[in-house]
Design a protein around this nucleic acid. Structure first.
Lengths: 135, 135
DNA sequence: TCTCAATATGAGAATGATTGTCAAAACCGT
DNA sequence: ACGGTTTTGACAATCATTCTCATATTGAGA
């Protein structure tokens, strides 16, 4: 039955908790960890269970409404993003993030993979640096 | 004085353990986790402590002789690589890895970052797909 | 070769993010 | 309001990684 038990369903009124997580992400401009989201919501009064934070974030990733990437020490961090394909330019110091696009890169990655006989190609690309304000 | 206490020193005869880890990585063609390295060495008889495996891998990363990246579930995986800058094309199914280069991409990443006022730019790029053998 | 000080090792404990469990709560259509 | 389904949340369980520290190894000099 490939049921969608657990994990917030696609077509269902979002719960208070789901809205809280989503809005918090909208408000913050940089990548945020699940633990931090949980802590911030708690501070803000409207507490949300840690497990629920993880579940909600995961379903948002699946739905494509947030991007996820891993910090150097392996922690997953999330950010509300535009839905079309893009990459991130992240400030190493303050965490400020800019979405960037590079059609040429997409094509390059695809063709290189094809040349080597790979199919079903995807890729990840992140750029890090120190932004003007932090220099 | 910013001593290099702990972590295999740079100019010191490599220990049996360090050699064991290095050779195991040389032999394997794809990215391997620290846990797996530890298990393989144990099977092979010449056991090496888990902490030592982690320490050795870390120092090899610092020395630039192995590349490290994170799997989707956050586990760190290591691979002996050529020392010049390159990226990886990884088979999602069997893990086989091909090193690829793309000068154009490097330039693109650099210039995009500069345009946004970022300095000290670095980037990560990995390509995933299913290789011919696994199709 | 013997000694000493510095460094490396390893077993096990500690850490910390993430996931699993499951009873209670919220929700929906009837 | 009722019954079935979905979601929540407190807490336990996992599991990779790091820390601790006593012991073993090494290298240079006497």
């Amino acid at each position: 039955m490939t049921s969608a038990a657990h994990s917030p369903a696609t077509a269902r009124k979002p719960t208070r908790q789901q809205v809280a997580v989503a809005e918090l992400l909208e408000r913050s401009d940089d990548f945020t960890s699940a633990q931090t989201v949980h802590a911030r919501l708690r501070e803000a009064g409207a507490g949300v269970g840690l497990a629920t934070v993880y579940r909600t974030l995961q379903s948002m990733v699946d739905a494509g409404t947030v991007d996820v990437l891993r910090t150097d020490d392996g922690e997953a961090v999330y950010r509300a993003c535009s839905t079309h394909h893009h990459h991130h330019l992240v400030c190493r110091a303050c965490g400020r993030t800019v979405e960037v696009e590079g059609p040429a890169v997409e094509k390059w990655a695809d063709s290189v993979a094809r040349e080597h006989g790979f199919s079903g190609v995807t890729h990840t690309l992140e750029i890090f640096g120190t932004c003007a304000d932090c220099t």
